[in-house]
Nucleic acid binder design. Sequence first.
RNA 1: GGCGCCAUCGCCAAGUGGUAAGGCAGAGGUCUGCAAAACCUCCAUCUCCGGUUCAAAUCCGGAUGGCGCCUCCA
Length: 476
Amino acid sequence: MQIFNSMNRRKEEFVPVEPGKIGMYACGVTVYDLCHIGHARSLVVFDVIYRYLKYRGYDVTFVRNFTDIDDKIINRSNERGITWKALAEQYIEEFYVDMDRLGLLKPTYEPRATDHIEEIINLVRQLEEKGLAYEVDGDVYYRLQGFKGYGKLSGKNIDDLLSGARVDIDDRKESPLDFALWKRSKVGEPSWPSPWGEGRPGWHIECSAMSQKFLGDTFDIHGGGQDLIFPHHENEIAQSEGASGKPLANYWVHNGFVNIDKEKMSKSLGNFLTIRELLEDCHPEVLRFFVVANHYRSPIDFSQENVAVAAAGLERLYQSLDRLLEKAAGSAGGSSSLDDRIEAWRQDFIAAMDDDFNSAAAVAVLFEVSKEMNRQLDEGETGIDPQAAAQVAEFMREIGEPLGLLQETPRDFLQRTTGKADNQLEAAEIESLIAARAAARKERDWAEADRVRDILDENGIILKDSAEGTKWQRKR
RNA sequence: GGCGCCAUCGCCAAGUGGUAAGGCAGAGGUCUGCAAAACCUCCAUCUCCGGUUCAAAUCCGGAUGGCGCCUCCA
């Protein structure tokens, strides 16, 4: 398996620290607001990686944290007149609502910063002992001068950063680049006792403390959005490696951004889309399909049109699956005449995903299966038999699983309500109209049959006639 | 100003040295009462210029055009 390592900007052969086991840490969210589709992409990307590593038989320990204390949380809770704790709890709950709808697997651990104050303090003390941290009036800063290798992940060097104009001038710090490990609390702010007085953790230290606790000094994969490379991950490296003297992670994986209509998504541009808003008229698997059909490192452009294309593609796959299951008609699956064919597809899928999680190429395998199966199904009696149909359906679900696709029953997916129109026909009404049309067709009353079909069409229902009868689905 | 990424068919998107995956849309055909769906066939030489090589979309140099980071950010 090859993984593109942000540290060297190269694909590298993946070798876990411990054979068969993988430790993976992905930076989670700061819980002060609802998650947006940028979060959704990152979350889905690492969910897919997690799922795939498990599919490949690894024993994966996946850690994704919650940042539940920081400036934004404090400010927002003050605005609302509630405690920081209440605000964090609220958005952690909202986070889980979104994650469940997106079908994300639960990580092995989901630690919160404020549950690890002791570990954080210990880590800061270690850094102090090593001369890599110093206290000023209850604040503790990281001494960058003392850590060589700063900038190795982001490709920056200290001199360039110093010459940049945007560094805060703070006379109390030895260097403008030194960042806070521990912040003295102001009056009324949440705080925890520490050797430096009442205070709270700085921005980056929690990830160092928690990854060390759950995964050890050196683990396999550290992930996050590309925007986290600097300064967050760079600072994590300084903290963790400064303390342990060992590499923090062997592979750094960063996902690309989400643009909306070719513009950067931002609150100031007003093109900010939350997961929740999106899911009002977009099936979660369509969102996943959209994410997975693109390479995780490329930027993706989010637009109505692109979502529609994703929906059309996923529907095509579900349609094939639907036909296969119909053909299988309760057949057990298991081994069949298609064993070799399926194994070849499986190897194609694995080859794609083993190549730096190339999910777009993996999706192409699903389309190949779909096309081939449709062809055979069209042949009728001389084509695929029920046993093989059941086996292929099972296989499509098998490789869909790591991608988080094709996990619904096709009928549910194809006939789901969209949430767009408020007066949608009930399934029973649709069935009775179809029956009326069938009766008219039997009488060869084409005008009446077409009239009924037009009614359904106006209500967003598409009919498909076949030898076995008429099937319907909703258009979108 | 510093660091870095990207540019492949009308649209989306794989491919990083050996002669362009896949999806959407489009054209023609099969099927159908007519459709829809499905199937079959067709549909790009990879922004431009120069170089390396037997061979380049893939490597090097340059140009042009996008974008990101350098400040909280998935």
